[in-house]
Amino acid sequence: MSFVQTVTLAPGASTGWHYHPGRVHVMVLSGTLTRTLHDGTVEVSEAGERLVEQAGPVYIHVGRNLGEEPVVLVATYDIPDGYPQAVAVAAPEWSR
């Protein structure tokens, strides 16, 4: 199942730690998205940039808006039928 969704993160907001059962293609429309990945890597994406979030529980991540303006994303989800778009998980031990 593929679908498109607009996601807005207010300043200071977080997606919470999660993973996707399928690949997600993201376009940052405005603001700055800061993602922390499963291995502790931090990726920063500015307005106009694209990113791909890989599928599966080994690719847990959290997205945060550390800026002062809303982060607006357009995400195209390619999720297998019968699965949720995202699965919430506990933060990794190293991040606590």
Rank of each mutant, 00 (worst) to 15 (best):
W94E: 14
M1W: 10
V24T: 09
G12I: 02
F3E: 14
V44F: 06
Y59R: 08
L66C: 07
S2G: 09
E49Q: 11
V24M: 00
R23D: 15
T8H: 07
V89D: 05
V87N: 03
D39C: 07
I79G: 04
M1P: 15
A90T: 12
S30P: 01
P11G: 06
V71S: 04
S45I: 08
G56T: 09
F3G: 08
A47M: 05
Y59I: 07
H20V: 09
F3I: 07
S14P: 09
I60L: 12
G56Y: 09
T8G: 02
A47L: 04
E46R: 10
G56W: 10
D78H: 13
A91N: 13
D81R: 11
A75H: 07
S14I: 10
S2E: 15
G67M: 13
A47Y: 04
G67R: 06
H38F: 15
D39R: 05
T32S: 12
D81N: 01
W17L: 06
P57T: 00
T36H: 13
V4P: 08
E53I: 08
I60M: 08
N65D: 05
T41Q: 15
P21Q: 07
R50A: 12
S30A: 06
R64A: 10
A90G: 13
G22R: 06
S95H: 13
L66M: 13
A90K: 11
E53P: 06
E69W: 09
V89S: 08
R96A: 12
V42C: 09
A86F: 09
G63S: 03
V7Y: 05
H61R: 14
V52Y: 05
G31T: 08
V62Y: 09
Y83V: 08
H18N: 01
H38S: 11
V58G: 02
L9H: 03
Q85R: 12
H61V: 10
V28G: 06
L66Y: 07
R96T: 14
